[in-house]
Each structure stands twice: as C-alpha cells, then as structure tokens.
Design a binder for these strands. Structure first.
Lengths: 107, 107
DNA sequence: TACTTAATTGTACGTAGTTGCACTAAAGAT
DNA sequence: ATCTTTAGTGCAACTACGTACAATTAAGTA
C-alpha cells in the first residue's frame, strides 16, 4: 500500500487528503528549491514540534512527495528534497500562496 | 471578525487554513458554475451528513468564499454560489484536481 | 387532524490530529 | 568519564473534527 488515502470521492477529495494536514503545504513549499536537513526544516517551519515534523515528513515520504536521504555519519545527517511528484505540486501551492497574500493584505 | 484563522505563519499556511477541512474543496468545486440549493449540494457531496454540510457552508460563508441567498418561502429555499474571492480559487482547485486524477490513475 | 417538504439545529458521542515533554543513540572531542 | 551534536522516539493529554440521530419550523395538501 503506497499511502493512507482511505477513500476519495473524487480527484479534488483525493488531492486534499494527500496534501491536507497542518504543515504539509508549508513543508513542500520550503523544500521547493533544494535539500534541507531535519534541523533546518525545524527552524524553517516555525512552531512545529519535532514530533510533528517527523510524523509529517514520514507521511510525505510514504506518499512519495518527498525523498529522504540518510548519510551514515555521527552525528546523523538526513536530507529531504522533493520527488518529481512533489515538484508537480509547486505551481499550485504557488497559486495558493499568491491568493493567500492578496487575502491577508485585504483583511 | 471576518473569519476564524488563528495565526498564519505564512501565506501558504493561511490559504490552507482557509480551504482546509474535509469538504471545503469539493464544495467549492461543485459550486464552480452556478447556484445550488442545500438539497442539491447534499446529493452532490456524496457522504456528507446534513450537520457537516450546514457547518461547512457556514464557515465558507463567514470566510466570504460563498454567498447564501435565502428565499422566504415555505418549504424553505436557500441557494449557494461562489463569491468573487471564491471564484479566484477555482483555477487552483482545478490544477489540484488534474494532479489528483493523474495520481489516482497511476497508483 | 395529521402528513409532507426543505433546510436546518441540538445533543451526545467517538475518533483523529496535535501538543508537550522527557528521553535515546553513537562517535568524537575535552 | 562526561559533554556535545543531530535526528529522532514514546507516552499521555487535549482539542478539533466528524458522525448519528432526533427534533424544529410553517405552509400546503389529503
């Protein structure tokens, strides 16, 4: 089983289930141009707990939206980056971001 | 107070808070071209309970993404449609839908 | 008089998502 | 031997999200 989508009633439902979640959008957006280590992500995703970060990264990895590369070093080093499928979501998150910015400024 | 966004760390976060929720995307998509009555929406959003539909519609209305028009008749008649702000989200939901369709077929 | 219809509302309950905090591993430096 | 660093894990608590089902309103019809 590739991921944890229960039952999608339509493609919109499916997509929302896959990138819903409190931090998924932000993480994907932050990873848009490059490789980030766990600690860098933790600093970038302001307010996230290590527990949630780990959990969310695992889900994104299971969903094949991000790639996790482990370096066998001590202290440990792990780098995260977008997969091709994940990269396909960037234009759409970008659109959403533009809309969000506009809305925030007009409140 | 216009809506219930607590604190957005960035525009991506803000946008996701505003159209997150289990049914919001689907409802907006269904309303993309026209006016629908409560009962019609209930049939269109397969699996939703009347309680959740009412609640979600209220949130979308408070967020100014949909417009609610009440006809003073008996039995009651209420029509929902997208506001201009809501319409701006359609291209992006459309993109998401395309991505979702592609993903669903490749599983 | 009772029944039907449309769009809800209210209460109670159950599950899923999120948080807080303490804790671990393993090598190298002090 | 203890300290430091990085990337986590484990558990309990809490809150938000979602479900189930009964009840409401008020005019029109049988």
């Amino acid at each position: 089983m590739k991921n944890k989508i229960k039952k999608a009633h339509c493609a919109v439902d499916y997509a929302f289930q896959r990138i819903g979640g409190k931090y998924k959008g932000r993480i994907l957006w932050i990873l848009r141009d490059g490789f980030l280590r766990y600690g860098e992500l933790k600093r970038a995703v302001v307010g996230i707990t290590p527990k949630m970060l780990t959990q969310t990264l695992k889900e994104l990895e299971a969903d094949e939206l991000i790639f996790r590369k482990v370096y066998l070093e001590v202290p440990p080093k792990v780098e995260y980056s977008l997969t091709d499928t994940g990269k396909e979501l960037i234009p759409f998150i970008s659109l959403m971001r533009t809309w969000g910015e506009k809305q925030m400024s007009s409140d």
